[in-house]
């Protein structure tokens, strides 16, 4: 069989290998789908398509609303079903094509055996040697006149010795050009006029809504979110040193490396502009004081980070570092710390 296919019929072994692989993979996929317990692919259903799948597409993810025969499936299943369908149709086509080729070759063999004179008549004499489909495809897509024959297509003009050939436009290039030109009105319609058209501003609004929902969902899973109503002073060394690290990175440029003050006020004395209780300090760091130039850090620091850095700041009380800035604000008494 193999010898017949390879030598008599001239079918390339790569084609056979591809066909066998395809059949095997397809059979395996069928088995997996049919015999899988239903519960196990529920997991798949629960996975929403991540944004990143849309990275190379042109628009933000459309909102899920699927009419039609695939309506009951998730996006992932729809894509999978579509790909499977295409693979299946391609497989069928290649099987049918193979059958026809084998039949043609068998006919040619029989005619050659019994009525060789008839060969020319049925136009089968050129049948061998067969070239693989990708060789034919390559030649069809490139369509260049071979170098040996190019004398026939040299144009009758020359410029300072430069001559030009009259090769056809490479068909693959032409196809690419047509495809991109066809893409243009489709995309313009899709992006500007269709029901799916999403302006940049609308896409932004959607992004913000989704993100807000995600953040809320996450926060709902977190117990005891720290805020100014329940924040506690931390005293363990780990927390204080973590607070110190944050302080050096974010606060020291304005408040000094030792909290002695600079652009911002001195943090080591007992005078405070916006209150010296832990809850006050926490709130000042979190929301900032825009009029006075204190930045709101809630977009950069997590509540736990703010708690640590606030605790560190209060641990600086009375350290009296050199070059301390003069006191600003009101005297704050120590008993309210806790």
């Amino acid at each position: 069989m193999a010898k017949y296919l390879l030598q008599d019929a001239g079918v390339n072994w790569l084609a056979i290998l591809a066909l066998l692989t395809f059949t095997a993979v397809f059979a395996l996929a069928l088995v997996l789908v049919l015999f899988r317990r239903k519960g196990s692919y529920r997991e798949v259903e629960r996975q929403p398509l991540r944004d990143s799948y849309y990275l190379l597409l042109l628009a933000p993810a459309p909102t899920p609303a699927y009419p039609g025969p695939l309506g009951g499936l998730t996006e992932l299943q729809q894509v999978a079903a579509f790909v499977m369908l295409i693979v299946f149709l391609l497989g069928c086509w290649s099987l049918i094509d193979l059958c026809f080729q084998l039949m043609a070759r068998q006919r040619a063999r029989l005619i050659r055996q019994h009525r060789p004179a008839l060969l020319r008549h049925v136009e089968l004499e050129q049948l061998e040697p067969a070239r693989a489909w990708w060789q034919r495809l390559y030649e069809r897509l490139t369509d260049a006149v071979p170098i040996e024959e190019e004398a026939a297509i040299v144009l009758d003009h020359e410029y300072d010795g430069v001559r030009e050939l009259d090769n056809n436009l490479p068909p693959w290039w032409k196809g690419l050009f047509y495809a991109t030109v066809a893409f243009a009105p489709l995309y313009l319609y899709y992006a500007e006029f269709s029901d799916f058209a999403v302006s940049n501003a609308e896409a932004y609004a959607t992004e913000m809504t989704l993100a807000e929902a995600q953040v809320q969902a996450y926060l709902a899973t977190q117990e005891n979110t720290i805020d100014e109503s329940n924040v506690m002073l931390l005293e363990e060394a780990n927390a204080i040193s973590a607070g110190q690290r944050v302080f050096q990175a974010k606060c020291a440029p304005c408040h000094g490396k030792a909290g002695e003050g600079g652009i911002g006020p001195n943090l080591t004395d007992r005078y405070w502009l916006h209150g010296g209780a832990l809850t006050d300090v926490f709130r000042t760091i979190k929301n900032g004081v825009p009029d006075k130039g204190m930045i709101a850090w809630k977009n950069e620091l997590r509540p736990r980070d703010i708690q640590e850095v606030a605790s560190y700041i209060l641990s600086l009380q009375g350290t009296d570092p050199p070059n301390g800035k003069e006191p600003q604000g009101d005297l704050f008494t120590a008993q309210t710390f806790k």
């Binding site: 144009l155 001559r163 090769n167 056809n168």
Partner: peptide, 12 residues
């Protein structure tokens, strides 16, 4: 000129 070859395709 440098390759001493004709240009591949006038129409292109």
């Amino acid at each position: 000129k440098a390759a001493n070859r004709p240009v591949f395709s006038y129409r292109l």
